[in-house]
Nucleic acid binder design. Structure first.
Lengths: 148, 148
DNA sequence: ACAACTGGTTTTATCTTGAAACCACAAGGA
DNA sequence: TCCTTGTGGTTTCAAGATAAAACCAGTTGT
């Protein structure tokens, strides 16, 4: 976990986001959640992480309103972790990580999982940032301006 | 840094990306780089982080090809850290973090810095993910499929 | 009733982090 | 020229986070 004093109350939304997410594992947990994982044991087996760490991460993710802890949908006495609206808001972020990885860490032709659009089964387009008037924007086309 | 054994060689691009980035500080460094920061001392003052940690992060970022270390543009004997193409590829990710933070961690009307399009000076649109045929896609409209 | 599974917590050794001190070299001024 | 300041780090060490394994209570299947 990142030192709080440098982040807390930061005026920068990027810093607040990072602070809420907590650490790398949290994003992998969220990624798995988008793939339909819901149960503690599933996350643990899937990620291969220590149970105490998973436990701690899930607790802070719930505390930050990224996951909700709800009764299991299969009728058992157990519970499930499901993404809230805030958690689902991380979707573009996960996609961004994935697309960056695909672009720079895989040789052409190297196999990796893909995200496809459910309706057509075709790969999705790269994330795009657009201006209010619709122009596609790159890093050089943007500036950060101080709070007004 | 996340335990390597769980990530290395992972078939998941998300995991490879996270592994390359290293940690939270790295993303804040990259964020600052997009704002024009280039020198060691600038990063250090701006982020308020320990110099040894900054030093280590910059080293791994350079090793991963996210920054290049080049002679300073002001003619001095010092050096500067500039984003490579791979580093600039993190732009949507930083924007994604920012927009998520803006959406969920600021009260309406609470002041924060903004990213605007340089040409018009107007706020940018939210990042959007589209299908090949142009349809806007949310988390439920996508599936991850295994490598073919 | 019993065995196995789920969802954790506790314990302990190891690793990472952060703060401060320290240092070498460059640049600038008198 | 020497002296001072600024830059860009490295080293040291205390404190905090992490990982692995053992443990445990409640639940489910047979």
């Amino acid at each position: 976990m990142v030192k709080r004093t440098s982040m807390e109350g930061a005026e920068c939304p990027v810093a607040r986001s990072l602070d809420a997410i907590g650490d790398w594992w949290s994003l992998l947990i969220v990624r798995d959640a988008f793939d339909g994982i819901r149960r503690f044991g599933e996350f643990q087996r899937n990620l291969g992480m220590a149970k105490n760490i998973l436990s701690a991460r899930l607790r802070t993710l719930v505390a930050h309103g990224i996951f909700d802890l709800v009764p299991a949908s299969d009728g058992s006495a157990y519970q499930e972790y499901v993404l809230t609206a805030k958690g689902k808001g991380l979707f573009p972020l996960i996609i961004g990580l994935r697309q960056w990885g695909e672009a720079f860490f895989f040789e052409a032709g190297e196999a990796h999982s893909r995200v496809v659009d459910r309706e057509q089964g075709r790969p999705v387009r790269p994330l795009e940032l657009r201006a209010e008037d619709g122009r596609l924007l790159g890093p050089e086309d943007c500036v950060r301006v101080a709070a007004e």
